[in-house]
Amino acid sequence: MQEATKAPPVAYYDYIIIGGGTAGCPLAATLSQNFRVLLLERGGSPYGNQNITNLATFTDTLKDTSPTSPAQSFVSEDGVVNTRARVLGGGTCFNAGFYTHADPEFVQKAGLDLDLVNRSYEWVEKSDGVLSQN
């Protein structure tokens, strides 16, 4: 692994993979067994980054969306503000789940029953995160 600015000015590859996420890394590893592969990742390496390897600083990593951070803010097609990984290995470096309530306007636009959606929130919150059938 090396910074792009330190790469040779001319190099030849059988495959160039854009993005070192959960699909790009395994694909590059598999192809590199028989071919010359260049994997391009806009982020850095997660190794040695305390904000990724130390669970105590995990939320700090998600909040820091500066240009040098391994996290990047984005807005989904549905208008949900979120954070995604900008680091080799992709989102598996930020492997966590988040529970939020949908905006009532979104529920309406999605054509869902708001009363049913609200009752489902109550059910999940009473279960303390453990999904079981009674």
Rank of each mutant, 00 (worst) to 15 (best):
S127Q: 04
G89V: 04
L38M: 07
N95I: 00
I18C: 10
V81A: 15
P46I: 01
D128L: 13
E41V: 05
Q108T: 07
V80I: 13
S45E: 13
G44W: 15
D14C: 03
K126P: 01
L116H: 12
S132D: 13
L55A: 14
G48E: 01
L131F: 14
G43M: 10
L62F: 07
A71M: 06
V130Y: 13
V130K: 15
N51C: 15
A7W: 13
S76A: 06
E77N: 12
P46F: 09
K126I: 00
L114T: 02
K126D: 10
L27E: 01
V37C: 07
A110H: 03
K109T: 00
S73G: 08
D103Y: 00
F106A: 04
A85T: 04
E105P: 05
D128G: 14
N134Q: 15
G20C: 07
Y13A: 09
L62A: 08
F106W: 06
Q2P: 10
V130F: 15
G97T: 12
D128H: 14
F74L: 07
P104W: 02
S45G: 11
P8M: 06
L62G: 04
V87G: 13
S120Y: 08
N49P: 09
A85D: 03
E125V: 00
D113W: 01
G91W: 00
R42N: 15
P26L: 07
E41T: 09
E3Y: 15
T5Q: 15
N134F: 14
H101Y: 06
T61R: 11
R84L: 09
A23D: 00
R84Y: 12
D60R: 15
Y121K: 01
